[in-house]
Amino acid sequence: MNIDFPHRQSAHCESGVTANLLTHGGIKISEAMAFGIGSGLFFGYVPFLKMGGLPLITFRGAPGCIFRKAARRLGVEMAQEKFRRPERAREALDRLLAAGVPVGAQTGAYWLPYFPAALRFHFNGHNLVVCGREGGDYIISDPVFPGLVRCPAEDLDRARFSKGALAPKGRLYHLRRLPDQIDLGAAALAGIRDVCRIMLKTPVPFAGIRGMHLLARKLERWPAKLGDSQAALHLGHMIRMQEEIGTGGGGFRFIYAAFLQETAALLGRPELQLLSERMTAAGDRWRSFAVGGARICKGRPLPEDTYEALARRLRACAEEERQIYSDLQEVAR
């Protein structure tokens, strides 16, 4: 029982899953488009939420958001389910597969045997599509991998019921019904408005532009407050969240720039193309932050690599993005 599924390797797991599921359902969209419509771009720094002693730093929204929001904005009816018992969760998966439905699943990364050792961390926000079963193995379209992979059923059960922060609880999701007509342009603009709102007008100081400034203030004080080795660990953690596989580079800024470019062509709005170019420049600035930060982590900083300089660069990123979002807001109004 194998479903013919249009697997495409993607930069990010959830936008990849969303794009591939929608494409299978008949709405052919790119990963960048799914990411933008689902308003996946975000920044959050929550110093009091710790994972392994390190603060929560994220460049994307909460797991599940991209799919849910993209489906809503496109008028797609989705279904999702969580489970208490692994046996029930497996039955539900098998039932959907038998009906020819490819199923999205949230899993932990740690227990997936096909993951490279370097990425085996207890991270519960991974997404994949189960698109078949052969004997004791599931056939999986994991968007960050080049081709389909196999995973023994017991290991998938484990991954679906991994524990800790954001535990997936076996969460499954799939498309239930597609609309007769879709308005990709309107959905894209709605996605843009949502990102601008959360980045510019957040009521909490941990998110959006305010979150970047908060992080810049804290980052400056890391060496004095935490000592050199802990400060370097915090910095490395931030670089991992920004650049490790699954962001498409520059903390999702490049994938978002790709989305803006596609939307510019779709709607015939050249001003969005200019904003795409500015977003690319913002991504490049984040990358240069990572380059300097990594030199500190490695213990080989150049004279200009200080925490103060990094904080300055972070503030420059924040101000540059503030301008981008306010201009974007005007365009998408």
Partner: peptide, 17 residues
């Protein structure tokens, strides 16, 4: 979409972890 085998700053952060 361009394939990348890896990026040194990201590798440094991963190995540090």
């Amino acid at each position: 979409l361009a394939p990348s085998s890896g990026w040194e700053p990201a590798n440094i952060a991963n190995i540090q972890a």
